[in-house]
């Protein structure tokens, strides 16, 4: 069975290697600074104790004050999973670094979030709408979007 790796364990190992990137930690989730996300994800994917080699999903939440992008990844070797979160505090052009260089599966999911939530993923080679058509007005899953 896959169990969630306690955030305490992740933090204790991350804070040595990346001091100051962790903003906040819940029980199972770790909130990191958005510009250090690729480095942290790369470490979580390759480091011996973690081996989070499978990206379950990426999703995004609109909290009005900020957008939160949520990543869940699983280690098929150790059968544990973790949740990473990043926040962007601007509504005009929220930007998060792309993880497509680390997880290929991030490609379509980042496009989906860009399409519906309007978050730009920096470094994505093909960032365009995936569900809606070119020319659609706005990003419909934003809380302040109206038809």
């Amino acid at each position: 069975m896959i169990v969630a790796l306690p955030a305490k364990e992740i933090i204790s190992q991350l804070s040595d290697k990346f001091p100051g990137v962790i903003e906040e930690a819940g029980q199972d989730s770790v909130l990191v600074k958005s510009d250090s996300l690729p480095a942290v994800a790369e470490h979580l994917k390759t480091a011996a104790g973690f081996k989070f080699d499978y990206l379950n999903y990426i999703t995004a939440v609109d909290y009005y004050q900020y957008f939160e992008v949520v990543y869940q990844m699983t280690s098929l070797e150790h059968n544990h999973s973790a949740i990473l979160k990043v926040r962007c505090h601007t509504r005009d052009n929220p930007t998060v670094p792309s993880l497509i260089g680390i997880y290929q599966g991030a490609d379509f999911q980042e496009r989906e979030i860009y399409d519906l939530m309007g978050i730009t993923f920096e470094g994505h080679p093909n960032l365009k709408r995936i569900f809606l058509w070119e020319g659609f007005d706005g990003h419909p899953l934003r809380k302040d979007w109206n038809q």
Partner: peptide, 26 residues
């Protein structure tokens, strides 16, 4: 981090997408 562009061929062309969008809007 560098993102390689060598898999560009798997992506549809933006021109086609714009055509599609125009037809849908019509």
């Amino acid at each position: 981090m560098e993102v390689s562009n060598d898999k560009e061929y798997i992506y549809s062309s933006t021109e086609l997408d714009c055509d599609e969008g125009r037809i849908i809007e019509e």
